[in-house]
Design a protein around this nucleic acid. Structure first.
Length: 765
DNA sequence: ATAGCCAATGTG
DNA sequence: ACATTGGCTATG
């Protein structure tokens, strides 16, 4: 310290006056001595300014020395104001050349910010070109003092029924032992290479290597779990007590024997390696039970588990399954619906290590699970997994990052397959985990498309009087033996343009963005770069004609109800979601994502208005349509039990084919290949900048962008303009860093007008 | 953001 | 001569 004061006080002051540049203000305020050991606290201050996104040093007064522990909340004077912050670490000396202020107070000695989460927050902020303060606001719930002062009581989930039991027939083992190398795994940019070895297998020390699935009760390797070397254990006082490995470990692979690679994956969990799998779940209600089984296996090996699902309904299913397997006290659920006190109580129980199995919705992605050994995300294509607050992190990314950092296993599962998950497989970061065709054929319903040609399907949707007869026949047959699910898209999708003959989406020749018509007379123009394209021709069939792809979604279902008088009509969606329906005949009308479970499974499902889903102006329209269809079809009985599904869409469309064949993997692989071709995420990395034209210009001017960057736009946006930046994945880190730097420069210069920076935004048109 | 400092400006 | 305002800088 105390070197040259490099950057300040150029020749500026006026004549005569005192040289005292800085008066020793806080010295007067706190006269007492400073801590004898490690007198300097590095503090992450909660300020929204990009150029101040770094730790600041403070002196620790002796009177606070005992309370000022790493991870605790503090109040400090910053720029003359009292501000909240987190104490990151105590050190012997500061690098700061100037005078240090003192901590004002320790809000509470509770170490709420673990080293793992602090480092994670920094990395997430970097990755998304945001600030650590923003991430910490997402990661650490507000304090509830009363709750904190009470001793941590028992955990506890919620009630509810349903879920998964049953295990299926076995299958040959011999799958992967994925632990996998991860040479720069997910990100060729090599952001990670320097990281300490993230691979788990190294520390397979115990006796319970692969064999004996029973002998789990090993002491827990003295809490030196994470190969990642995250200094967790040391920072955790008595809280990291030996919440001893579960003696009642689930025996063997259980339901996972339905998947050829399942037993090996479970074995990896049991022996504390770090297998990583992208899991294609078999249709049916077993998935919560399967996740619970994996969780119990990891827990039995002494490791913490974190599971994230899209919504409260899925959470209650998973909660029920965990309770069934582990009892009510071993796990905890975290969701937005809890009040502040209960939320904080459960979160604290997790942080203190009282509970080490955590299931939750999106916000739980940052839960400070002690000794993390397994992360799980279910249905990673659901857009609820995308955090809508800055810096807009995605649960899949954050969990993958955590698995990578800490050497935890990862399970990315769903009925469908996203392009992103496929990318993780393609890069070798994770292995596929899917059932064999024969088992799948046995479990899936029979699926057919209604409307051999699209015109018929469109008419059927527009004029519900003429539903394809296959739909009516299927409904009738289904109602003879049980409930029939009718899936109808929500209203309000925007029209986009497609080929009048083959219905392919019309895309900009220059940048690949979506074409649309501003009004009837205008030439089609790109929604990204605004280029006109008056001479558009379909790249697939060379047809020159364009047409709107979307019809209104509608009351088809009610019409359908009229066709079956006397049958109960149950509606679920939006305002009034229904969780479950009985197994008796009924028409159950639901919007995607709100489909109730049916006791014993639906006899049939009718997936209406396929065009409305496929024609959405989104990059992911096809993937999303398939996801919704598969999620609905998974609720239907298997073909062996007579389950039937009809989708009202043209059978020649790839997504429809993928549904009929229940082959989301091939579809996703094609989707990924196509995105490589078109240069869309996840094949490339994109950033979206929105704000006033001046502000966006200012940000771009301040940014030292990687050479490979491609600028698209600007185009009009609801709130000003939008620019898109595109770089190869290898330049993704550099892009984020450049944008972060530019935000910092702008904020330092007080340039007006906020610019929203979003990396790989979920919704790209 | 916002506190603090300085210089320029306004006012009696 | 003094109070008020605007610009600028740094924030530990």
């Amino acid at each position: 310290m105390a070197g040259a004061t490099s950057q300040q006080a150029p020749a500026r002051r006026k004549g005569g006056a005192g040289p005292a540049r800085r008066k020793p203000r806080s010295a007067a305020r706190d006269r007492g001595p400073d801590a004898a050991v490690l007198p300097v606290a590095r503090v992450a201050v909660d300020i929204p300014l990009a150029h101040l996104d770094r730790p600041f040093d403070y002196l620790v007064p002796e009177r606070l020395a005992g309370q000022a522990v790493p991870g605790c909340r503090v109040r400090v004077r910053f720029a003359g104001q009292l501000t909240d912050g987190y104490l990151l670490e105590r050190v012997a000396a500061s690098e700061h050349p100037g005078q240090l202020a003192r901590l004002e107070r320790v809000v509470s000695p509770e170490p709420v910010l673990s080293p793992e989460i602090a480092a994670l927050a920094r990395e997430v902020a970097d990755r998304y070109a945001g600030t650590m303060a923003d991430v910490l606001r997402l990661a650490v719930p507000p304090r509830h003092a009363r709750t904190e002062s009470m001793a941590a009581p028992s955990a506890g989930g919620e009630p509810d029924a349903a879920g998964g039991r049953e295990s299926g027939g076995s299958a040959p083992a011999g799958g992967p032992d994925s632990a996998g190398r991860d040479p720069a795994g997910r990100d060729p940019a090599g952001r990670d290479p320097a990281r300490r070895d993230p691979v788990g297998p190294v520390l397979v020390t115990g006796p319970e290597a692969a064999g004996v699935p029973e002998a789990a009760g090993v002491p827990e390797a003295a809490g030196v779990p994470e190969a990642a070397g995250v200094p967790e254990a040391a920072a955790v006082p008595a809280t990291a007590d030996p919440a001893s490995p579960d003696p009642a470990r689930p025996a063997g692979p259980g339901p996972w024997s339905r998947y050829p690679a399942g037993p090996a994956f479970l074995d990896g969990l049991a022996s504390r390696r770090a297998p990583r799998a992208v899991w294609s779940a078999l249709p049916g209600p077993q998935w919560p039970g399967e996740i619970a089984w994996a969780a119990a296996t990891a827990a039995a090996a002494g490791r913490g588990v974190l599971m994230v699902v899209p919504d409260a309904r899925d959470l209650s299913l998973l909660d029920a399954a965990l309770t069934r397997l582990l009892g009510p006290d071993r796990h905890v659920t975290l969701s937005a619906g809890l009040g502040p006190a209960e939320r904080y109580r459960r979160w604290l129980a997790v942080r203190r290590g009282t509970v080490r199995i955590v299931a939750g919705t999106r916000a739980a992605m940052f839960a400070p699970v002690v000794n993390l050994g397994l992360v799980v995300i279910w249905d990673d294509g659901d857009d609820l997994h995308a955090e809508p607050r800055a810096p807009y992190p995605h649960a899949r990314d954050v969990l993958a990052l955590r698995a990578h950092r800490t050497g935890a296993a990862a399970l990315i599962g769903g009925f469908t397959r996203t392009a992103e998950a496929t990318g993780l497989v393609a890069s070798g970061w994770a292995r596929p985990l899917a059932a064999g065709r024969a088992v799948l054929r046995d479990r899936m319903p029979q699926i057919r498309a209604a409307g051999a040609d699209s015109e018929l399907a469109r008419d059927a949707v527009a004029q519900s009087a003429r539903l394809p007869s296959l739909v009516l026949r299927t409904a009738r047959a289904g109602l003879a033996s049980g409930p029939v699910l009718v899936q109808v898209p929500r209203r309000g999708y925007l029209a986009t343009l497609g080929c009048a003959r083959c219905r392919a989406r019309a895309r900009c020749a220059a940048c690949g963005g979506p074409l649309s018509l501003a009004h009837a007379e205008a030439a089609p123009a790109c929604g990204w770069c605004a280029a006109d394209d008056p001479h558009w021709r379909c790249p697939h069939c060379a047809h020159p004609g364009l047409r709107a792809l979307v019809t209104g979604a509608g009351r088809t279902a009610e019409e359908l109800g009229h066709a079956f008088p006397g049958i109960p009509l149950i509606e679920s969606g939006g305002a009034g979601p229904v969780t479950a329906v009985p197994g008796s005949p009924a028409l159950v009308v639901a919007t995607p994502g709100a489909e109730p479970r049916a006791a014993g499974g639906y006899a049939a499902a009718l997936l209406l208005d396929g065009w409305a889903l496929l024609g959405r102006p989104s990059l992911r329209a096809a993937e999303e349509a398939l996801r919704r269809w598969l999620n609905a079809a998974a609720l239907v009985r298997g073909a062996a039990a007579g389950g039937q599904v009809v989708v009202v869409a043209d059978a020649s469309i790839p997504a429809v084919q993928a549904l009929i064949r229940w082959d989301p993997v091939t579809h996703a692989e094609r989707e990924l290949a196509e995105r490589e071709q078109l240069r869309f995420p996840p094949a490339v990395r994109m950033a979206s900048l929105t704000g006033s034209p001046d502000a966006v210009d200012g940000l771009l001017a301040a940014a030292e962008l990687p050479a490979a960057v491609e600028l698209l736009g600007p185009v009009e946006a609801p709130d000003g303009v939008q620019m898109l930046l595109r770089v190869p994945r290898s330049a993704g880190v550099a892009l984020a860093a450049a944008l972060r730097g530019a935000q910092a420069a702008r904020s330092a210069r007080k340039e007006p007008g906020p610019v929203r920076v979003q990396l790989d935004p979920a919704e790209l048109s």
